[in-house]
Design a protein around this nucleic acid. Structure first.
Lengths: 140, 140
DNA sequence: AGGGAATATACCCATAAAAGCATATGCAAT
DNA sequence: ATTGCATATGCTTTTATGGGTATATTCCCT
C-alpha cells in the first residue's frame, strides 16, 4: 500500500472523495463536525468494532482528512484546522447534506446523550469544543 | 455486480461520492457541467480510450449521476436535470473546486477548441446548451 | 518492572473496482 | 442485406477496499 500524507493544500480532490465514499467514514466525519472526539466515543455512538473504527480513522488520517493528538491513553481526533479550499468546500457540503439526514442526525443526538456518561470515565477526552490540534499524525 | 438505478431523490450520499472518487469520472463531470456531450467529444478531450470512457459513463448512468439520449449514432450525455438536494449540492461544490483547478480548466479549454471541428462531423451532437433530456437509460 | 486500558497494526479473505482486448449492438446510408 | 460508424458489453487480470481475528504498541498506575 503506497500512501503518503498529503500536504493540506495539495490534497487532491479525488482523495477527498475517496475519504467520503464509505458510510462509516461519513458517519465519523459527521460526528467530528461537532467537535473533537476520542475513538471510544465514536465507537460507542456508531456501535461498530474498535478495529473497524480505528482503521477508518487511519485511512482518513493518512489522507489529511483528520488530525489527531494523544491525550494520555486516548487519541483525540478532529477535523483539520487548516484546510485546503477543496477540503473546506466539501466538508461544508457534507455538513449541509448530513444536517437534515435522519441517520446522521440520529448519530449526533446519540453522541450528545452519550457524551456526559462517557466523560465520567477516568480522564477521557474532555467535551471541549476546541482542543489543541496537531497537523500531522503522531504515529510513526 | 448488483446494481439498480437509484431514484433521483433517494440517491444516497455515499453513492454520489463513489461516483466522484475517480479522476476520469471527475473530468467527465467537469466537462458535462458546460453542457451535454456525446461520447466522442469526451473521448477526444480526455484522450482516453473509448472503452474506458464508455465504462465510466455506464457507471455514472447506473447511479443516476448522468442522463443520456440517443441522437442517431451518438449518445449524448448530460448532468441530470432534476437532482436531489444532495446531488445538487455536490455538483455545485465540484464545480467550485474544479473551476480554478488547472487540470480541469485545461480540459474545458480543450473542449471549446475541439468542439467546432468535432461538430463538423456528419451529424455529431450539436453544440446546443440544452438538448432534450431523458431521465432513464435507453440501454436495455 | 508489571499490569491494565485505549488504540493501532499485521495478516487473511472476500468482494469491488479499474483497465485491457475482443466482440456485440444499434443506427444510417447505400 | 450489407457496410460503416459510434457506442456498449463480456471476459480477464490486477489492484484496492472493507471487514475479521489476533497481536502489538503506548500510555498510566502501582
Amino acid at each position: 500500500m503506497l500512501l503518503w500524507v498529503y500536504s493540506l493544500v495539495g490534497m487532491l480532490l479525488v482523495e477527498i472523495y475517496k475519504c467520503l465514499c464509505d458510510p462509516t467514514r461519513l458517519r465519523i466525519l459527521n460526528l467530528l463536525n461537532d467537535g473533537p472526539l476520542c475513538v471510544c466515543h465514536i465507537q460507542d455512538v456508531l456501535g461498530e468494532t474498535q478495529v473497524k473504527i480505528s482503521k477508518h480513522l487511519a485511512y482518513l488520517r493518512a489522507r489529511g482528512m483528520v488530525t489527531v493528538i494523544r491525550r494520555a491513553n486516548w487519541m483525540v481526533y478532529s477535523l483539520p484546522e487548516r484546510r485546503s479550499a477543496e477540503l473546506d468546500a466539501n466538508l461544508a457540503c457534507l455538513q449541509d447534506c448530513s444536517c437534515e439526514d435522519p441517520k446522521f442526525k440520529a448519530d449526533r443526538v446519540k453522541l450528545r446523550k452519550l457524551a456526559p456518561s462517557l466523560n465520567k470515565k477516568p480522564s477521557c477526552c474532555p467535551p471541549v469544543r476546541n482542543a489543541a490540534r496537531r497537523a500531522t499524525s503522531p504515529t510513526k
